[in-house]
Simulated scan of single mutants.
Amino acid sequence: MPTILRDGPYRFFFYSSDGNEPVHVHVERENKITKIWLDPVRVCNNFGFNRSELYKILKLVEQHEEKIKEAWHEFFDH
């Protein structure tokens, strides 16, 4: 599970088996996790985050979108 970045209480990562799916990122905090598609940025699934926190996470993903995509392609396109 490569960690791409940390921003406040959030850890952004993907699983090493995610490479056959469209570009996305998992975001976790404590026992909550969500999966965010990147093209376009939107929630795929969510376990525990409320609507306002999901909105905040989506904004963070948008802010870090290029870094996330670069990390994805660096890891999976080798």
Rank of each mutant, 00 (worst) to 15 (best):
F49P: 04
L38S: 02
N45W: 10
E70A: 02
K32V: 04
T34G: 00
I68R: 06
H64K: 06
E74A: 08
C44P: 00
K35D: 02
R51V: 14
H24P: 07
G48M: 07
I57C: 03
E21R: 11
G48L: 07
H26D: 11
D39L: 05
E30T: 12
V23M: 05
I36Q: 00
K69W: 15
E66T: 10
L60S: 13
H24G: 01
L38Y: 15
H64E: 08
K56I: 06
V61T: 06
F47V: 14
E62I: 09
V61L: 04
C44Y: 07
I68G: 01
L38W: 06
G48T: 05
E74T: 02
I33V: 06
E66I: 07
D39M: 05
P40L: 05
P22K: 14
L54M: 15
V25A: 01
V25W: 00
E30M: 09
W72R: 05
E30F: 14
C44E: 11
V43F: 00
E66S: 07
I57P: 03
N45T: 10
E28T: 09
S52A: 15
L60G: 03
E28R: 10
K56H: 13
E53Q: 14
E28Y: 09
G48K: 01
E70H: 12
K69R: 12
G48Q: 08
E70T: 06
V43D: 05
E66Y: 14
E28Q: 11
E28F: 09
E74C: 04
N45C: 10
V41M: 10
L54T: 13
E53F: 03
I68S: 00
K69N: 00
N31D: 14
